[in-house]
Design a protein around this nucleic acid. Structure first.
Length: 409
DNA sequence: CATCCACCGGAAATAGGGGGGC
DNA sequence: GCCCCCCTATTTCCGGTGGATG
């Protein structure tokens, strides 16, 4: 393709500005899955987890551990950091230690978890077709032959326990060492942000998993500031951060139960916005814009991933709520509106039971807030209120050709 | 103070689409 | 080829329940 010399070429402009990297030096340092060199204000937790797992270096069975605390309190980062260092040390010593990290929210069925572990021990499995038990047994067989120490981290483990068969798999995992008969060792590290989850576990699973429990408390604003300053030094070119930017990110995140991931997201997206606009400095204004952009992206992504009837249900909520000036709506009311929408499209409607389930799902996805209330004589039902920007939702709904038919007018 | 509304929410089953192992 | 497995969305069935009302 011949270049268009002398004429403004929009792509060329994009490319060259990407190359100058005027804002970021190493942007990925701010991405959520980056494992930092240092974890300020988590020294105690790092040390404790390391103590639990260290026996692996002698080829002995490490302990099981359970980490809990709210999102963005450093659980995952601590786990990954310790595992990285442990594997490094083991390599140095020539000891067979292998860490297997599974995010159970992303791999949220017993089969997927078992398959992830299988891959982690070097067993190739198809993505479907086998039973969970089969996958599990193949892994055990290979482990017996290979030997070594394995540390399996189950992040957001509550999502596994909730699924049918999830507890069974957990139970089997907690006693896999008996099956291995000393040829290899497996230790489990469970991570969750749900305290109530711990109580919902079968006692035998809980006692095994919770040999050591570490509680992660929310970061305070000054602590978040330390974290951000650490990372910002790596991530940005010198002098590009405007006055008060870090403080603002820390303050906004501290307001949300001290969520470090949120703080880092704000800082990163603020930088991205500045870069995109060609501004030489990241300012507080960029941070505010980042907050909006993050939320819009989140909502858009969630809504796009919804099945058709869930999309219709959320549209029904918006319609009903719009008609009642942003006040809450009840299940029955939503259901009626939803049925109207399906009729308009000439579609079958799902049952009330299902819509009730969808309402619960929308709540978990953070699009809606709902609580069960009793209106006495007038029955018990769920009170639903929108918890996301309706404009962002509608924008995403627009992209569904079926739903879009309802939005023309 | 018993009643009874309007759902709630667990459990199990189905549909229907994608794949094993031997 | 036969029989078994997984996954998601949904249906069916059904016992449960907080509190305004009569």
């Amino acid at each position: 393709m011949a270049g268009v010399r002398g004429v403004a070429d929009p792509l060329e402009e994009v490319f060259s500005s990407a190359l100058t990297r005027r804002i970021f030096r190493r942007r990925w340092v701010l991405l959520p899955d980056y494992v930092p060199e240092t974890l300020p204000h988590r020294e105690r937790e790092l040390r404790r987890l390391a103590e639990v797992l260290a026996p692996a270096l002698r080829g002995e069975k490490p302990g099981n551990a359970f980490l809990y605390g709210l999102t963005g309190t450093g659980k995952t980062a601590v786990a990954r950091h310790v595992l990285m260092r442990l594997e490094g040390k083991a390599r140095e010593l020539g000891v067979a230690v292998r860490a297997i990290y599974v995010n159970v929210r992303q791999r949220d069925t017993p089969y997927k978890v078992a398959a992830s572990i299988a891959e982690g021990v070097g067993v190739r499995v198809p993505f479907t077709g086998l039973s969970v038990g089969e996958v599990y047994e193949r892994s055990v067989k290979r482990l017996k032959r290979l030997g070594g120490v394995y540390i399996v981290v189950l992040d957001e483990i509550d999502f596994l326990a909730k699924r049918p068969g999830g507890q069974d798999l957990l139970y089997r995992l907690t006693r896999v060492n008996q099956e291995l008969g000393g040829n290899a060792w497996v230790s489990l590290v469970g991570i969750t942000n749900s305290l109530s989850f711990v109580e919902s576990l079968e006692p035998r699973v809980r006692s095994s998993l919770g040999e050591v429990e570490l509680v992660f408390h929310p970061y305070t604003a000054p602590q978040l500031k330390d974290i951000l300053e650490d990372r910002a030094r790596e991530a940005f070119n010198p002098g590009v951060l405007g006055e008060g930017v870090i403080d603002l990110c820390a303050a906004l995140a501290a307001r949300e139960h001290g969520d470090a991931r949120r703080a880092l997201d704000l800082l990163r997206v603020a930088g991205e916005i500045a870069e995109r606009r060609g501004d030489p400095l990241v300012t507080e204004e960029h941070v505010y814009a980042a907050r909006i952009e993050i939320e819009r992206d989140r909502v858009g992504e969630v809504v796009r991933g919804l099945p058709l009837h869930a999309k219709l249900v959320i549209l029904a909520i918006i319609r009903r709520q719009g008609a009642r000036e942003g006040k809450s709506v009840y299940t029955g009311e939503v259901y009626e509106e939803y049925k109207r929408l399906t009729a308009e499209l000439g579609l079958e409607h799902v049952t009330l039971r299902r819509v009730s389930g969808i309402l619960g799902e929308l709540d978990m996805l953070g699009l809606v807030k709902s609580r069960v209330v009793s209106r006495g004589r007038y029955g018990k039902t769920r009170e639903v209120i929108l918890d996301a920007d309706p404009k962002a939702i509608l924008e995403a709904l627009q992209e569904d050709p079926m739903v879009a038919r309802l939005l023309e007018d």
